[in-house]
Design a binder for these strands. Structure first.
Lengths: 341, 341
DNA sequence: TTGTAGGCGTTATCAA
DNA sequence: TTGATAACGCCTACAA
């Protein structure tokens, strides 16, 4: 592999000049000299060595992406790729590379994070995945290493993050159901361990409240572990409420739809179903499901842009970017025919 | 950030000694000295700088993963993450990091590849994604830069690759259908542009042949563009064959199932359906689909292991690793009741 | 067993 | 406008 010195020799100039040509600065180079250098670069098929550049510049032009939980196998695999797309897209657009970290099988995430920042592997870090302990995130923020939390916030703490409007998605969904005549709306949520579980529940409650519908705990089921799939038992319990629900709000729509079918319940005749997660297969199910669309790609882009600001030494304000979600209406939530008699 | 010199000073030894402690070699260090060094490292919270190590060692301990096509939006998003999981798992297990490249929107993949190898960004490269032109892959192989092609081979060329047994999956699936009484088996394949399209078709034909069933082109549909979804028109054409098909083999099972439903065709009563792709939602559909399972995670692992051999200067033999697939029988392909009269 | 010093390939500061 | 040359932080022959 040719080095900058080879180019300099061939062009009959100093390495400094070659460097200035390569980087378009910081000092000018005479057009004629520049031409000589460019020709030498061509002829030698020279490319600057990345490791040497990083050492000299003291930056890597790499962003780290920590996908905590990718190591676990019970992991919603389709979920993350859109984020990755957005992230890699934006990083590429700004001339940055992306380095992937996952922390498989019991690897200490704390140790991993320390390594990433202290060893200068990357200039900044994106944290994605709910299995990442809050303490790790808070540590990173405290250290001052450029770090952005993606798709989640840590309640009660201010830090750099980009996320969907979880509250709004549940609020909007519930309002939509109410506007379409549903009155007994069940809520099959996720654990309250993370902000999205809490915020969705609150959005749901707020919409009920505004409509003057009392909150009925027997219509609500929140499993303790966020990784648990909903069970038939859990769903049966909600269906057994009295009066029974006429609609169901859930963030595990595909599994719930399948369980409902196994129970012999027809969507939407027996019960309407609205998904708060954005399942790829929702449009293809027996009854195409109404779901919320998350701007995952856009969130990836926003995360990179915030991170680049942090790397540049700016203090983005506000430190949180919240992107709106969108309700995609399909067949599982038709306007309810009010039964006249 | 402390450097190795700071550690040396604090421990009262030379930088060489510190280096030998850090790397456990290549020369021994007296236990007492080692202790002093380790303590200094602790006290200073020292981590070696990755860029400097890479420059000095002339290797990056990074693997590149080129996900060609991630930039395109009509991209089966759930497909790649399992590969990524396997790759990152194996890389991590061997002390390597993974760098992600995607080549968004018209970026010249050739240029990207040249940069990756010539600039020393990574020690080796994994190529994934069918939108990667054959010429790029062949180029890489020719250059001698450690490169492994994942989930695909280039017919007529010998090169390092790991892939599923596409032929076997279609062969096995077809045999299964035949063994269960199906005689008129339709094939809704992918373009023949890539090996998997060709190999699946051949596996299907071989199984028919062995069963003494003549190959009927009116039962077969191959769209020209691999990114096109099957159309109702295309499916109607196959259904119109005479005699009509009693089973359908396809690698777009979810969309095909949805189209069949829209056409009023019942699975499996009107027609059996067997998916050659491994759709996540196959188990959750109205009729859970029989599909082929791909060992994607395992393939990622195998790819990394082959790549590490190449990096180590070995010539893996044979240069192709083919992993078997597995037929997951669900409800869409029950044994056919032979109608007696 | 340990220390010294040259080299890895760039960048960027001095001078000229 | 350009050329020497000292960093950047680590590795590793060569000496001691």
């Amino acid at each position: 592999m040719p080095t900058i010195a080879d180019v300099a020799k061939r062009a009959g100039v100093s390495v400094a000049t070659v460097s200035y040509v390569l980087n378009n600065g910081p000092r000018p180079v005479a057009p004629k000299t520049r031409q000589k250098v460019l020709r030498a670069i061509q002829e030698l098929d020279y490319y600057p060595n990345a490791s040497a550049q990083r050492l000299a510049r003291r930056r890597t032009e790499c962003l780290g992406l920590l996908l905590a939980g990718l190591g676990d196998s019970n992991f919603s695999s389709s979920y993350f790729l859109e984020y990755i797309r957005g992230i890699s897209y934006a990083a590429e657009a700004h001339g940055y590379n992306v380095m992937l970290f996952t922390g498989h099988r019991g690897a200490q995430i704390e140790t991993l994070c320390r390594n990433i920042s202290h060893r200068g592997l990357v200039d900044g870090l994106l944290l994605l995945g709910s299995s990442l302990p809050d303490s790790v995130v808070l540590d990173q923020w405290r250290k001052g290493f450029p770090t952005v939390l993606v798709a989640r916030r840590i309640p009660g703490h201010t830090g750099y993050c980009v996320l969907q409007d979880y509250w709004g998605s549940a609020y909007q969904a519930t309002r939509y159901l109410i506007a379409n005549g549903y009155q007994r709306i069940g809520f099959l949520g996720q654990s309250l361990q993370f902000n999205y579980g809490v915020e969705r529940l609150e959005g749901y409650r707020q919409a009920l409240k505004e409509a003057g519908i009392p909150y009925d705990p027997t219509l609500v089921s929140i499993p303790p572990d966020p990784r648990d799939d909903p069970t038939p038992h859990e769903i049966a319990a909600i269906l057994a409420a009295s009066p029974p629900p006429d609609a169901l709000l859930t963030d595990r729509e595909v599994v719930v739809a399948s369980i409902l079918r196994d129970m012999g319940k027809k969507i939407p005749d027996d019960i309407a179903l609205l998904g708060l997660d954005e399942s790829e297969s929702a449009p293809f199910l027996e009854v195409p499901l109404t779901t919320v669309r998350f701007p995952k790609f856009e969130l990836g882009v926003a995360a990179v842009e915030m991170l680049l600001k942090l790397i540049a030494g700016e203090k983005p304000h506000p430190p949180e970017v919240v992107l709106p979600t969108q309700l995609i209406v399909r067949s599982s939530t038709p306007p309810k025919r009010t039964e006249r008699r």
